[in-house]
């Protein structure tokens, strides 16, 4: 949209591009990533169950019992809060790179590339600090 001048057109029409383009994406990222995390958690545990119980043939009740013994609500909540942070972070970074792209088709490709790299690195860095903040209190 930046390359084709559509964002300039928004501004000419007195529509605030931040309100129209960035804010909806950030809010939806904040709301959707926790739900995706729940689905991911469920699918991941299901995959682990299939491999350990059905393929390797260990005890199903042992697997589920240990799962519920050692997992408590703070783990799941911590994961969800982390995911909400990541959602905002990734969308903010991607929108920033897209918003300030210049230089035609090549520039769009370059911006997408930069956005992916910056998102990956910042998620990894953020993850460590969030883990220490949420789960590392009583170390």
């Amino acid at each position: 949209m930046r390359v084709k001048g559509e964002i300039d057109a928004y501004e000419v029409m007195a529509v605030n591009p931040y309100k129209a383009l960035i804010v909806p994406r950030m809010v939806s990222g904040f709301l959707i990533t926790p739900i995706l995390t729940l689905i991911g958690t469920f699918t991941g545990i299901l995959g682990g169950y299939i491999i350990t119980v059905m393929v390797q043939g260990s005890n199903a009740w042992g697997f589920m019992g240990n799962l519920f013994n050692w997992l408590d609500m703070t783990d799941i909540l911590g994961g969800i809060i982390k995911a909400a942070f990541f959602g905002i972070l990734v969308i903010l970074i991607s929108c920033y790179y897209g918003f300030h792209v210049r230089g035609g088709a090549a520039g769009v490709g370059q911006a997408t590339n930069d956005a992916v790299v910056a998102s990956v690195v910042s998620i990894m860095v953020m993850n460590y600090f969030l883990t220490t903040a949420f789960f590392g209190f009583n170390i």
Partner: peptide, 20 residues
């Protein structure tokens, strides 16, 4: 890019492993 990602994965792995 690999340096920070690898470093923070290692750090995070250590903290998580410790908690478990």
């Amino acid at each position: 890019v690999l340096f920070p990602v690898a470093a923070f994965i290692g750090m995070n792995l250590c903290v998580e492993g410790y908690i478990i």
